[in-house]
Design a protein around this nucleic acid. Structure first.
Lengths: 349, 349
DNA sequence: TAACCTGATGTTAGCGATAACATATCGGAC
DNA sequence: GTCCGATATGTTATCGCTAACATCAGGTTA
């Protein structure tokens, strides 16, 4: 490790290895390190002359601020850690993008990790992220292993949970009720005249939110006096191919299902394609509804009914909560959702 | 927030604010701070007794390692900065996921930012990421503003460029040739008997890779003696709706286009839906091909021909390059791509 | 028994920045 | 001319950890 940053001083060579430090800048500018630091962080509080000299030295040396050192020294560590179950998922990407935008505007970085819906991995990742001393830790969902909660007890980092609401939140929850989503879809089908319903969900053992949507759907159907919806569980991640299989499965059974809700638009899309391949009329013979309001489901033929979650809104609000203690002290923020009725579930007859 | 984890612990309570430090742990364990540090980082080189005592103290106090301090002290700063044009894009998500997996296995974090295809934003973000002193900086593409390159000159951080190959790489490039992709699609159409070709691309002013695919497509069509393909430029981001519009536009012209390539599967998908809506036979009246090999295009009816980029492979290799200097010294790694012929471009007649 | 390893643990001195405090410097009021 | 306060800059002491070196047993070897 290069340690001799000797600096002949008279001839001001740049350190051969490593980065330029603020002290190097200050030396070149002929001022104290602290003055250089101030010139950078509070340009309004130093003389124009000092500002100019420091600026010139910075450009000359190619100095890049070192936030690691800054973080240690007491300046807030400007980073936020986020764990999502999957980055591949368009929902979470939209949230991440909005969150990143919100944070960037205040010079805060985004440290992301994905748990792959694995609780054990989630707690490992939470530890890893906390070891960077982020300003806040953001987790997806509200059901975490005891290990994660125990971890959080030892540190002063605020925890924010997103994309779901807990019945009894122990920290800030920003999301919406997946149970209500399921109920809304069931009501929608019922009011459009469909009586024989079904629900197909992927990854429901691991994805509590999908499970909740399913439970809400079934409960509401029963409450409305319909027969208990058939539930098809797919033990894998949501993929279009799985949606096709689920649709094939639903079409096999008797009595015939009239309307099927899916835990995810990706599955609903697959179901539509399966119907197209078999020449089954949608919604005539089978009505469909998804979840997520992916760009694509509005454009299919027929277009697919879906529920739009407030993905970007969640990201934005989480970003604000990072900086706003008052906001963080609210226990739960329900951002709601929108059911968007489209051709795939047009009223019967 | 529950704060009173007071720990009467004999006499020595935990510091009222902030986190537990390694010194606290060492004190409780009755050893020197350095010994605790060693017990954590090189458990094989300390006595079992010491390891046990430190471990117990850590559990008792809920100590969480502070990598910020570690980073400053000289241990490699275990973080990698990545800038992608968009997180919403499934291609880059797959790369990020693979990269994250590769890094996590070695305890390295992923600091991500998205530039939104904006060069100015990219250079700002590059600065912000570098200020965390990452182990490496990973950028998407090979065309960066002079500002970014100037920035890199001042620091010792390795730069890795991914998802494209430069004709004269100045740093490690891990990707494939987008020009070759365009050529391959043109050849595929030609060999399937299509003579009148077209290319529709989104965001081509900003997305050099899409531009290259287009250029390759056109060049190859000409080389094969076909007439110059019609090119439709969409001045926005790729969306399914834009694909529908592009298809409508293509179907309007004369002479009739027989086969259309799209810069992105999302557009191709839209084009298929537009054809479905208008009752236009695919591939009978119009053949289609996309790029990206999204999960969904294999399942549509008819399925859509696409080019599969090595998204995950790129992430994996970038992850390896971060740790492997020898790998990094290679200038370019061409991972190639696969054209997957499907029903949407089946041979004519 | 002294000189010499060897392996385990302790001590010291930073890493690069910033908070808190100390010290100019200047103009104006008396 | 002296004293004051306001503003601008410099000094010192950390922040929490780890590299490098120092120390100290306990067992060899001659």
């Amino acid at each position: 490790m290069a340690r001799h940053s000797a600096q002949i001083a008279g001839a001001k060579g740049r350190r051969s290895a490593g980065h330029v430090t603020l002290a190097d800048v200050a030396r070149l500018a002929g001022v104290a390190t602290m003055s250089a630091s101030r010139a950078l962080r509070m340009p309004g509080e130093v003389s124009p002359e000092l500002r100019r000299r420091v600026q010139r030295a910075i450009e000359q040396l190619g100095y890049v601020r070192n936030r690691v050192a800054g973080g240690l020294a007491g300046a807030a560590n400007d980073m936020v850690g986020v764990i999502v179950p999957s980055m591949h998922n368009a929902f979470f990407s939209a949230t991440l993008e909005a969150l990143a935008r919100e944070l960037e505007s205040r010079g805060v970085g985004l440290l992301v990790a994905n748990s792959g819906y694995d609780a054990r991995k989630e707690s490992d990742l939470a530890y890893a992220l906390l070891s960077w001393r982020p300003r806040a830790l953001v987790l997806t969902g509200v059901d975490h292993s005891a290990k994660v909660l125990h971890l959080m007890r030892g540190v002063s980092t605020p925890l924010i949970e997103m994309w779901d609401l807990s019945p009894r939140p122990a920290t800030l929850n920003i999301g919406f009720s997946h149970r209500e989503v399921g109920k809304a879809v069931a009501r929608h089908f019922a009011s459009a005249g469909y009586r024989k319903l079904a629900f197909a969900g992927a990854n429901m053992q691991l994805d509590r939110r999908a499970r909740q949507r399913c439970a809400g759907f079934v409960a509401e159907a029963l409450r409305l006096g319909l027969q208990r919806p058939r539930v098809v569980e797919i033990e894998q991640r949501a993929e279009v191919g799985r949606g096709r299989e689920a649709a094939a499965e639903l079409l096999r059974g008797t009595p015939a299902v009239q309307a099927a809700a899916f835990s995810n638009d990706v599955l609903a899309l697959g179901a539509l394609f399966e119907c197209q391949a078999r020449g089954i009329a949608v919604p005539g013979r089978l009505a469909l509804a998804g979840f997520g309001d992916l760009d694509v489901v509005a454009q299919t033929v027929p277009s697919i009914t879906s529920v739009a979650p407030p993905s970007a809104e969640i990201g934005r609000l989480v970003g604000q909560a990072v900086f706003d203690k008052q906001l963080r002290d609210r226990r739960a923020i329900d951002l709601g959702f929108h059911l968007i009725a489209r051709a795939s579930s047009a009223p019967r007859r």
